[in-house]
Structures are given as C-alpha cells and as structure tokens.
Design a protein around this nucleic acid. Structure first.
Length: 544
DNA sequence: GATTTCACGTA
DNA sequence: CGTACGTGAAATCC
C-alpha cells in the first residue's frame, strides 16, 4: 500500500513502512509496473502524470460510474454503491485545500480495513487525510471497495474487462489534459482573424469590430435597422417584416430561404463568423492554448449518458475551418485514424447478428447492406441510422421494413432496448455499463417514446465508446516506446503525436491495436472493424 | 447570481 | 417529432 499526501510519500505494505521525499523517489524505489494501482479517482493523483507511466490501474470513481450509471462518483456514492446501500445526497462542492495524492497497490496489503458501517464524516477530505492514521485507512478502504466492485462486476458480463478499460480511460484523460493538443499558433491566429477580425486592442476596439461584423447583416435589414442579431425573437421579428415567417430562427429552418434572400444569407454567414468569434476566438486562444502551443482542456472518461468521453475547451467541437491550425510540432507527425461505420459494426457484435456480421466483412458496410436489402446505398445508410437512432419520420420507412427482415436479430436487440427505455427500465451496454433512465408514472407517451429513442441509441453508442476506449488504450501502450502520445480522442477518431521517424510504425501500430482491441472486446466475434489511418502534418489534411 | 432557452459546433 | 455532448449570449427566475 502506498500513501502519498502533501508532498510526503509514505509506503506501507506487509514489509513495513517507508518514507520518500517525493513521488519521483517513490517511483524509482518501488516496483509499480507489476501491480494494478488503485485510487479513488484519477483526479486525486494527477500529479503522478509527471513521474509515472501507469500500466494498469483501478479507478473507483470510473468503475462506480460503470456499475451504477450516471455521473455520481464522489466517495460517498462510491462507498454506498459498493456496499449496496442507498446513495446519499450529493455533497456540497467543498473545494479541497490540497489535492490528496493517495493510492493503494492491489497485491501487497491484504489486511482488512477498520469496519466502517458508513463513511466517516469528512472522509477523504484534505483535512481528514492530514491525520496519518486516516491516510492509511483511506488507502485500505480503496482496496476494500475495489474488491467489492469486482464482486459486483463478476456477476455481469463480461467480467472485469470494462472496469480495466474504464479505469485506463480515466487515467488517459489525465494524460490528455496534461499533454494537450499541438497547434500551429500563427495558422490558428490567421484563421481566427479571417472569421472574427483582428485581435482587438481594447474594449472599444472589440466593440467596433463587433459592430462591423453586425453591419454585414444590417446592410440587408428593412430600412437598415440595427437589429440585435443575438436576440432570437428580435431576429424572428426582423425576418417577419421581410416576409419570412418561421417557428424559430435555427439555421436548418432558414436554409431554404437562403437562395432567395440576401438578408437570410447574410444572417447565416454572420452566425458562422459569430460562432468562431465568441466561442473559438481570441479569448478562447488566450484561455486554452498555452505558451508551449498546446490546446488543453478537461477530459471526462464517461459522460452521464451512454459513457462516451467528453472534453472541454472546445476540443470536441472544433469547427472544421480551424482544423488546419492543429498541427504536429517540429520533428513530429500526427497519425490520424478514424473508425469506419463503427456503430453498425458494434451493433453486429452486441446483438450477435450473424447476417450483419457478414456485412461487416466489407470495407464499405453500407454497400453490403444495400445489396442485401435491394436498395440504393444512401437509402440503406439512412435506414440503418434510423434504426439505431429511433427515427420514425422521413423516407426510411420502406427500407426499415426490409431491414427488419434482413437483420431480425440486430433489429430485435434495438427494439428490446427501446422497449425497456419506454417502460422506464435501465438498460445495460454490452460492456456492462448501467444506463439509468428517469421515469414518472404520469409520463406522457411522447416522453416515453423519447426515452425509448435514448436507450435504443445508448446501447449502440455506449458499446461503441467501450470499443473505442479499448482501442485508444491499446494504441497508447503501443506507441509509447516510440515516444508517441495520444493527443485527441473524438468518439471514433484518434490523433497520435509521434516523432516523424516513427510515423509509419505508429500508423501500423494503430491498425494492429484495432485488431487486437476488437478481438478482445468482442470475444472473437466474426465482426470486422476498419480504420482509415494516415500520417499527416495537419489535422485538416485529406485522407489518402 | 443562478438557471433556462436558443443556437450551433462536433461525433 | 433521430442520439449524445460543450459553449456562449440573452432571457428568465429567484
């Protein structure tokens, strides 16, 4: 067992107690590679990212989110869920005075913890952990909870694989936050300037630039009125005066009027520029891009819904026009890899549909599905997406019926998930994540249907996230000896930053990692996954 | 001052 | 009445 707090590092195991001056000293003195490290939350030990390359870990918070679903992962919830007790109300956000650096090793300390019924008040807080005896108890409790969690997961398929993967992903999130995404600052500045105007010198200058941007629309307004473009109801009224009556002013609703109305065209163009100016403008650059030209944000290993990774600082919604600004550092390249048609392929695995599995043998899955259904490829694609998203309107109807006949197992799986959701029952992903739904007895039919669409999609989206994490973690390990680092995870796409001498080798490793991860994750199901992988300098570079 | 609505970026 | 997320501006609710 290792306890490390406030810069002092204490190691306690069956051989006794040892002290180290720093985590770095701990790292050189202890064999940490051969064990699975256990911690309450990767966030608590993020300082270790500087000194330690974690091989295997167990993250109580991440595993709790897997077991229980949702986003609760504070110690009180983790403890309660592991002990099958009622989850207490969420704690008031109490800022830690110091971050606890504390973890346990899974193979060295079998001693039972002091038998707490409930978590002691204040347990895990910085002040509570200042007491040496509490530090030891806290590490022992972590070990204890990890074993309770493992017991719970042993009763779910597929055992502990998801717990390992979710824990690894939580640590990868710490690494992603620390590493950052390499950017080409001059290019980024040029792109921002072309959309948002030059960097303002002061407040008045910013206002002037803003008015200038608004002016591009005002030139087309009735009588040149200076309408507040950021006020949707004012915009709607302005459009009404121009003879355009719409429910709301969303882009997809205005698009049909674009060709016939210079005003609408100017407005929609303004919206694009305004988006970059406000969300991805100078302020964003100054806030999130460090002096080392790395774009950094906070990462979450699993969101509150189906369990996908999320990222802040706009990392997951960077507008395409800005992507030339994401570029490898000098002497480095990026390996870009994105999974082709991951959701229907994942569906073939989780539903165990042999016919759909057959279709995954093709590089272009939808071509195979189209042939099977006897429809055009675009129709097949829309029908498959409609089935996975729960779309019932539109033109997917007839192809959807053929889909039911061709892939009854997969469609039945989706329908079952939707039915459970409608009834207010939680669903479980292939990897064993509980996806909670909230239901009331007096819910309207529309609410129930919406819940059905959510769960229908969650079992696919969530399973895809699980495969993706297994892949990303395999890639992480494979490229590390080459000095490669995963720098972006985007649902079905990976960016790896690597010294240019190893670009091709890293690309090969990424593809090999997909084979390995998919085989492990799917239990050897006859389902093929494909990656479009290329070695590039800039994220925007076309696929080969 | 905190929360909700609208809008839009990504997958 | 296709799913999920994060972000910002304005409106709305205390």
């Amino acid at each position: 067992m290792v306890v490390a707090t406030d810069g002092r590092t204490t190691v306690a195991d069956d051989d006794g107690v040892r002290h180290y001056a720093s985590p770095a000293d701990l790292h050189t003195a202890e064999q940490l590679d051969s064990v699975r490290l256990v911690w309450w939350s990767a966030r608590d030990v993020r300082a270790l990212v500087e000194v330690l390359s974690v091989q295997r870990c167990w993250d109580l918070a991440a595993v709790n989110r897997l077991i229980h679903g949702g986003a609760r992962d504070d110690a009180g919830a983790v403890w309660a869920v592991a002990h099958a007790m009622t989850v207490p109300p969420p704690p008031r956000e109490s800022p830690r005075t110091t971050a606890p650096d504390l973890f346990a090793l899974d193979n060295s300390c079998a001693a039972p913890i002091r038998p707490w019924e409930q978590l002691p008040p204040g347990a895990g807080s910085a002040t509570w952990l200042a007491e040496p005896d509490n530090r030891e108890q806290w590490a022992r409790a972590a070990l204890h909870v990890s074993r309770l969690q493992a017991q719970i997961l042993h009763e779910r398929s597929p055992g502990l694989q998801s717990a390992y993967s979710e824990s690894g992903a939580a640590w990868l999130c710490i690494e992603l936050s620390a590493e950052g995404l390499p950017v080409d600052r001059p290019v980024l500045e040029t792109l921002i300037e072309s959309a948002a105007g030059p960097r303002p010198l002061d407040e008045a200058d910013a206002l002037r630039i803003r008015r200038q941007r608004d002016g591009s629309v005002w030139r087309h307004t009735p009588r040149g009125r200076e309408v507040d473009l950021r006020n949707p109801s004012a915009v709607r009224e302005m459009l009404r005066q121009s003879g355009i009556v719409v429910e709301d002013t969303r882009a997809w609703h205005l698009e049909p009027y674009r060709a016939g109305s210079p005003l609408v065209d100017a407005l929609l163009t303004w919206r694009k520029a305004e988006r970059i100016a406000t969300t991805y403008g100078w302020h964003w650059l100054d806030r999130f891009v460090g002096p080392d030209d790395r774009l950094r944000g906070e990462w979450e290993a699993s969101d509150g819904g189906a369990g996908r990774m999320t990222a802040g600082s706009g990392l997951h919604s960077l507008p395409t026009p800005l992507r030339p600004g994401v570029a490898a550092a000098d002497g480095h390249v990026l390996v870009r890899a994105d999974l082709g048609q991951i959701e229907p392929r994942v569906l073939a695995v989780v539903a165990r549909d042999r016919a759909l599995a057959q279709a995954t043998r093709q590089d272009d899955l939808y071509a195979g599905v189209a042939a099977e259904l006897g429809v055009e490829r675009p129709t097949a694609k829309i029908a498959m997406l409609a089935a996975m998203y729960g779309q019932t309107s539109g033109t997917a109807g007839q192809a959807l019926a053929r889909l039911e006949r061709a892939y009854p197992v997969a469609m039945g799986y989706l329908q079952q998930a939707a039915l459970q959701g409608e009834q207010g029952e939680d669903v479980f992903t292939y990897g064993g994540r509980r996806v909670p739904v909230t239901a009331n007895p007096d819910d309207q039919l529309a609410t129930m249907r919406a819940r059905g669409r959510f769960t229908r999609n969650a079992v696919v989206q969530g399973a895809a996230a699980e495969l993706f994490k297994a892949w990303a973690l395999t890639v992480r390990s494979a490229v590390r000896p080459m000095g490669g680092r995963v720098v972006l995870c985007l649902h079905d796409e990976l960016l790896v930053h690597v010294p240019e001498a190893h670009g091709e080798a890293a690309a090969a490793a990424v593809d090999q990692a997909l084979d390995d991860a998919a085989r492990r994750w799917s239990g050897g199901a006859p389902v093929r996954f494909v990656s479009d992988t290329s070695v590039i300098r800039r994220w925007s570079e076309a696929k080969p």
